[in-house]
Write a protein that binds this DNA or RNA. Structure first.
Length: 638
RNA sequence: GCCCGGAUAGCUCAGGGGUAGAGCAUUUCAUUGGUAAUGAAAAGGUCGGCAGUUCAAAUCUGCUUCCGGGCUCCA
């Protein structure tokens, strides 16, 4: 008897009855059979040795597939756990999933792992891999499983068992086994290269009230070369770290005198101001008005807004004339007071008030991270007050606005999350439902892919967040759009509608870049410090072949600066190669080399960083070239 | 807040119970050189802070501050 299965490319494959996914892979090609890690049958990822049925759709998963990687890393975590229990008997196992890049396993062990331990564990893993032990799936009656765990002292597994419906499945490698849904790679031998990266504490089930476990992070690959490449990539990524580049390029610093409060140096301030100027222009184009609200406001306001209830621990307080005041953690209450200051008509709506709002939040010191997580930052914030009918078009426009700004900044790779009502919220349930639906509608109508994050909304409304990854692929929230029916009510905002009745406006909180600090940090990493010309702190370095041409070089520098170009001259009596190297390492985009020929012709030799000599241009032509790129905010061609 | 690791010159880092090392950067002198490092010299440090052990601590121990990697948190 034979059966047919359907492959991803639409073709069908005829197999003997009882054939497995591995048999199918072998039938397709020997290479595929060699690289096969798992299979996807009717959209479910399963073990390769699982028998197929007639009519199944089948995809063979290799390390090139995201799901293949995930199985590979999950199996690696199993081997890690076995290695740890072999070396450190009495260590309890918990969970060990695959993650975006690699895997981890959480252990309960009396003494924490040391870096030396990691090396030993790696060696034990290599031994297990060399045994090429098959992963064998089995099922066990749950009572029996519980008995076994109790006998082994695997208390965490008992707890996990309680959350499972039906009988649990197990995967064993030789004598070692772990309760697991699977699937797994065929045998330990496929995991050729494993590197344990770090140890960290992690609460059992992510709950602070529970015990802290010892987590080991690792990564693995089917080939040694892949691991080497990955580790090299990691090293390269670390060189892009904005904290490192911020120091090297003299952009910003942090000091013990004000932990978490960034100091913007001259060069960093230029980037900051260029971004802010650009933002202002774009807001102007889109009919926003810029406002400015105070940094300190009395405490009562924060009670009214609900922030005090929820975030007082993260707020700073000061006393003025014996009255309690708070330093603003958000700009919205100030924005509400501006709206409330004048009578409003439906004809005024939507009102779009934009603000570079300087906020302070007391983040835990352990949470701080360069410019990404600070205690003082500036939001490119806006509050849109509108009628219910205007919600969807306004949100639609904001999303377009964000896309446009991110594009100019050079970001195509970001992702979107829709976060819904949290446990601690204000306002009515029905209103929340309407608000969530509105956000979802806009996203759906625009055909935007997003991840749903249930329970992660702001306390006053649901939100759409825009996340961008840093050089180490950690994601950070940047843009945000939050729909709020509660604050306007709490602050008794109203407008006169066309029928003369008073109505409460809807408020949309939104930020495009989010935090200026965070976004600039992300940009520094994105560009590896090679900022686009328009925001480069130094756009041109003028340098002479010898001191004899300093006079002319000074004229050139002056002329460039008179045209608004940030040019600096390197006066040092060094060879031009030295000055070029210096400019290159400081990531200055353009170098203007001046010698005898240039002085006679009134020209400069133009050099672009990373590219090299572009030839000779007259000073005017050079200025025109620069201005074209600056005004149009052009990116460098790669 | 919790777990682990770290802190030596402006930067990157080596060293290690007996008066502190390198490279780069800085300053000075010589050199005036055509697209990623000219040569020489000088200067630069309470080895994060406090206590303890010791004849002697940058080195060992404890505490503490800050930094890094995670967990938790992130309006």
């Amino acid at each position: 008897m034979s059966m047919k299965v359907y492959l991803p490319n639409g073709s069908e494959l005829t197999l003997d009855d009882g054939a497995t996914a591995f048999d199918a892979a072998s039938a397709i090609s020997r290479g595929l059979a060699q690289n096969a890690l798992a299979a996807k049958v009717n959209d479910i990822v399963v073990d390769l040795n699982r028998p197929l049925s007639d009519g199944d759709t089948l995809a063979i998963l290799t390390f090139d597939d995201a799901e293949g990687k995930s199985v590979f890393w999950h199996s690696s975590a199993h081997i890690l756990a076995e290695a740890v229990q072999n070396l450190y008997p009495g260590t309890k196992i918990t969970i060990g999933p695959s993650i975006e890049a690699g895997f981890y396993y959480d252990f309960d062990k009396e003494t924490p792992f040391t870096p030396d331990d990691l090396a030993k564990i790696e060696a034990e893993i290599a031994r297990i891999v060399s045994e090429k032990k098959p992963f064998v799936r089995s099922e066990m009656n749950r009572d029996e499983a519980e008995k076994q765990f109790a006998a082994q002292g695997e208390t965490y597994k008992v707890e996990l068992l309680n959350d499972i419906e039906g009988d649990p499945s197990f995967y064993s490698c030789g004598s070692w086994s772990d309760m697991c849904r699977g699937p797994h790679v065929p045998n330990t031998g496929v995991i050729k290269a494993v590197k344990l990266l770090s140890v960290a504490g992690a609460y059992w089930r992510g709950d602070v009230t529970k015990k802290m476990l010892q987590r080991i992070y690792g990564v693995s690959f089917p080939k040694k070369k892949d691991l080497e490449e990955y580790l090299h990539l990691l090293e390269e990524a670390k060189k892009r770290d904005h904290r490192k580049l911020g120091k090297e390029l003299d952009l910003f610093s942090f000091h013990d005198e004000g932990l978490g409060f960034p100091f913007w140096h001259a060069k960093g301030s230029i980037i900051y101001n260029e971004v802010a100027n650009y933002s202002r222009q774009e807001h102007f184009k889109r009919n926003y008005d810029e406002v400015r609200t105070p940094v300190i406001l009395n405490e009562e306001l924060w009670h009214r807004s609900g922030h005090w209830d929820k975030y007082q621990e993260n707020m700073y307080f000061v006393s003025i004339d014996d009255k309690a005041h708070a330093i603003k953690p958000m700009n919205c209450p100030g924005g509400l007071l501006i709206f409330k200051n004048s009578p409003r008509s439906y004809r005024d709506l939507p009102i779009r008030n934009f603000e570079f709002g300087l906020v302070h939040r007391h983040e835990k010191s352990s949470a701080m991270h360069g410019l990404f997580r600070v205690r003082q930052f500036t939001q490119d914030d806006a509050h849109i007050f509108c009628t219910p009918e205007q919600i969807e078009p306004e949100i639609n426009d904001v999303i377009d606005f964000i896309f446009s700004v991110y594009k100019t900044m050079g970001f195509n790779d970001f992702f979107i999350e829709l976060s819904t009502r949290p446990d601690k919220f204000i306002g009515d349930l029905e209103v929340w439902d309407v608000a969530e639906k509105a956000l979802q509608n806009v996203l759906d109508h625009k055909g935007i892919k997003y991840k749903l994050n249930p329970g992660d909304g702001a306390f006053y409304g649901p939100k759409i967040d825009f996340h961008i990854r840093d050089s180490l692929k950690r994601s950070w929230q940047c843009g945000t759009i939050q729909l709020d029916f509660s604050m306007p009510k709490r602050f008794d905002l109203e407008y006169a509608d066309s029928d003369g009745t008073k109505k409460t406006p809807v408020m949309i909180h939104r930020a495009l870049l989010g935090s200026m600090e965070r976004f600039i940090g992300i940009m520094i990493e994105h560009y590896a410090g090679f900022m686009p010309l328009w925001m480069s702190p130094v756009q041109v370095k003028v340098m002479t072949i010898s001191d004899k041409f300093n006079g002319f070089a000074e004229e050139v520098t002056k002329k460039l600066r008179a045209s608004g170009i940030r040019a600096e001259m390197d006066y040092r009596s060094e060879k031009v190669g030295y000055k070029i190297r210096d400019a290159e390492t400081h990531k200055v985009p353009y170098m203007a080399v001046v010698g005898e020929k240039e002085m006679e012709a009134g020209s400069v030799s133009v050099r672009l960083h990373k590219k090299g000599d572009l030839g000779v241009l007259t000073v005017d032509a050079f200025i025109a070239l620069l201005n074209d790129q600056i005004i149009n905010k052009k990116a460098y061609e790669e």
